[in-house]
Design a protein around this nucleic acid. Structure first.
Length: 292
DNA sequence: TCCAAACTAATGTCGTAGGA
DNA sequence: TCCTACGACATTAGTTTGGA
């Protein structure tokens, strides 16, 4: 199955080497999409759920993600998370887009670009930068917004150099076997499905219900969903729930039992079982780790 | 994309044990 | 005593497969 590329309508124009953008919106776009351009994104202010490749996780202000070519992704705020009453936009981010082939072609004229090329390949699974590397890159991203001409390009190269030299200060996000089978034509249907799951994962979501959302019967939906996400519908929902549980476990005053029910599990036994399968540690161990 | 059948994974319940 | 973790087991719902 050949993936179809999405085109960034306001992305990198043919004469540009890269584009830097600051976004302030009431909430992030819910569209699940991918594009040929690499994207470096810093979440200045917002929180919610995100999908990168086959990883479903929570995001918060401050994170820095680098997405390589063609990895499907979405940052999602629910209405509840958007703090609709606030006068200020709740979704604030900085992004840099560039075409990797074009950039490498230009850079190769000046010398060996193997290190950057290798990093860009790794980034096809999505990269979350951490520690000092993240702080340095974020600082440079703010600088780039104020710069013009050659200075902007020099700063971009600095950023690439920091990221590709950071051997330990990043995590790869999508699983190693992840392959993008996503098609542009699927966009609307998958958006509806993800939106429904994200808005309703605290309740029971039956296969019939979600298949109706996708306008398919249950068998067709199972096949469709697995083909696009490389995981079953139940697995996806449970990962969403466990991701939410991880967030709640940071609040010491809520008991693990309460968290289990809050996340949509109907009994603690199931919650413990899935938590350990997905996170490799029990909820209590996880809480101890993050609170320490 | 649909359907039927077979298979498998997820779920709920109960019991037990350890630690605070 | 309560909370948490975990195992066993029966049941149910979800998933896969193959043909159309």
């Amino acid at each position: 199955m050949k993936p179809i590329l999405a085109v960034l309508s306001d992305g990198v124009q043919s004469e540009d080497l890269f584009v830097a953008k600051e976004v302030r919106l009431p909430f992030f776009s819910n569209e699940f999409h991918f594009h040929e351009e690499c994207q470096l994104v810093h979440i200045v202010k917002s929180s919610g759920k995100r999908i990168i490749g086959d990883l479903v996780d929570y995001f918060e202000s401050g994170e820095l993600i680098f997405l390589g070519s063609n990895i499907p992704h979405v940052w999602h705020n629910t209405q509840e998370q958007t703090n609709g009453d606030e006068p200020e936009p709740y979704a604030h981010s900085l992004s840099i887009y560039f075409n990797p082939s074009k950039l490498l072609l230009h850079l190769s004229a000046f010398g060996n670009v193997r290190k950057i090329e290798s990093f860009l390949n790794k980034a096809q699974r999505g990269v979350e930068l951490k520690g000092r590397s993240r702080d340095m890159v974020v600082k440079l991203m703010y600088q780039i917004l104020q710069q013009e001409g050659l200075q902007k390009i020099i700063t971009l190269l600095d950023i690439l150099n920091i990221m590709s030299s950071s051997d330990t200060e990043y995590d790869l996000l999508a699983s190693i076997n992840y392959i993008n089978y996503y098609q542009y034509n699927d966009s609307k249907r998958m958006d509806q499905v993800f939106k429904y799951i994200f808005d309703n994962f605290r309740e029971d979501i039956s296969l019939n219900t979600i298949a109706d959302v996708a306008n398919m019967n249950t068998f067709a939906f199972c096949r469709f969903f697995k083909a696009r996400t490389q995981k079953s519908f139940t697995q996806f929902v449970n990962e969403t729930r466990i991701g939410y549980a991880c967030k709640l476990l940071g609040h010491k005053e809520t008991s693990i039992t309460d968290i289990a029910y809050e996340c949509g599990f109907n009994n603690v036994s199931n919650f413990n079982r899935f938590f350990k399968v997905i996170k490799k540690v029990s909820p209590r161990e996880y809480r101890n780790q993050i609170l320490s």
